Amino acid sequence: MLDRRDIRITMVKGAIHSVETFGSVDGPGIRFIVFLKGCNLRCKYCHNADTWNPQSDDMRTPEELLDFAERYRGYWGEDGGITVSGGEPLLQIDFLIEFFKMAKERGINTCIDTALQPFNEDRNSEFFGKFEELMKYTDLLLVDIKHIDREEHIKLTGLPNENIQAGMRYLSEIGKPIWIRHVLVPGITDNDEYLHKTRKFIEELSNVEKIEVLPYHSMGQHKFEALGIPYQLEGVESPTAERVANATAILRGEK
């Protein structure tokens, strides 16, 4: 017989924005990617501003979503699996725990694309206990470093970054593999001083398997306009190939 907690868990639903059935850049191999709704950050360069609002007309249980994802399992091969992105997936941590728990029971590789903004390093907090549970069923995290400097991080995203860095240190502590992503924005993050500081922080971590520099682009601008939100990076060009190579070399400790 199910107890009350079991009944609650089986009824938890995720607020879904969209899915991508054949993703090749969000984790190893071919991935089924789930974009969840809701995010507390307001990144100036966000290309998914339409995920900020946590409300969704597409609400699914973990089992419903997983059954749908498995229709495409034949494409994943040995390295692929499921990546949950957003928005910020950790804002729906109850759904994520159950979704990934079921996925691991079916032998599926699991990955979270996150900025770690909801992380709470208080080990007595409700979130921390849930995060510990989630990590049991998570194979890999793709973690964005928005900006290494606290004040610049606030200017770029609207919120500070101490808890984000604490989350990365905790993932290093438990040996959970991460890929680091860093969006290179001319005039904001494309700065050698900040890049070297970011590299120094990365050197504190023992769990980094890959570092990716993502050139800024304005392809999300139309979403801001559709939502009636001023786009603050109007006129900012993408970084040159030389600046991307420079940032990559610094962040990987090659320069």
Rank of each mutant, 00 (worst) to 15 (best):
L41V: 01
E254D: 08
R169T: 12
F127E: 07
N163V: 00
A241W: 01
L90V: 10
E209G: 12
Y231H: 06
I174S: 13
N40V: 01
L184G: 06
N109P: 00
S218T: 10
G158A: 10
D6Y: 07
P177V: 14
I33P: 00
E126F: 08
G129N: 12
F99V: 11
K200E: 15
V244L: 09
M135I: 13
F127K: 08
L134Y: 10
F99D: 03
E133C: 04
N207D: 08
H222D: 15
S172M: 13
L195V: 04
Q221C: 05
W52S: 03
F68A: 07
V213C: 09
R42T: 05
A49K: 14
K146E: 06
H153Y: 08
L134D: 09
S85P: 11
K210G: 00
K104P: 04
C111F: 05
D57K: 13
S125V: 09
K210C: 05
S238G: 01
R243L: 05
I33Q: 00
H217C: 11
G253H: 04
D3W: 12
D139M: 06
D3A: 12
M1K: 14
L66H: 03
R5L: 15
L91Y: 09
P177L: 14
E237P: 00
I148Q: 09
F224D: 01
D113Q: 06
N207V: 06
V185A: 05
D6P: 00
G235K: 08
P215F: 09
D6K: 15
R181A: 11
V84K: 03
A241K: 15
D50A: 02
Q232Y: 01
P28T: 10
D3C: 15
L66P: 02
S238I: 00
L41N: 05
P230Q: 07
E121D: 14
I250F: 06
G86R: 10
A241T: 11
K146Y: 06
V84W: 04
K176I: 13
G129H: 12
F127S: 07
T189P: 04
M219G: 01
G220L: 13
L134P: 10
F32I: 05
E209T: 04
E88C: 07
P160I: 10
W179R: 12
D149S: 14
T248I: 01
D6L: 09
G228S: 08
I180N: 03
V244D: 08
L142G: 09
I188E: 06
N191W: 00
E204A: 02
F35T: 02
F127Q: 08
L36T: 14
G253F: 04
L91N: 12
C43R: 01
E132S: 09
L171M: 14
S206M: 05
E98P: 02
E63C: 00
A69G: 02
P239T: 05
K155N: 15
G87A: 09
C39S: 02
L159N: 13
E193A: 03
P177W: 14
F131L: 09
L2T: 11
H222K: 15
M219V: 15
H217D: 13
P239D: 04
P177M: 14
E78V: 11
P186H: 01
E212L: 06
L195T: 04
E237I: 03
R252I: 00
S218M: 11
I30W: 02
E237C: 00
C39A: 03
E203Q: 13
S238K: 10
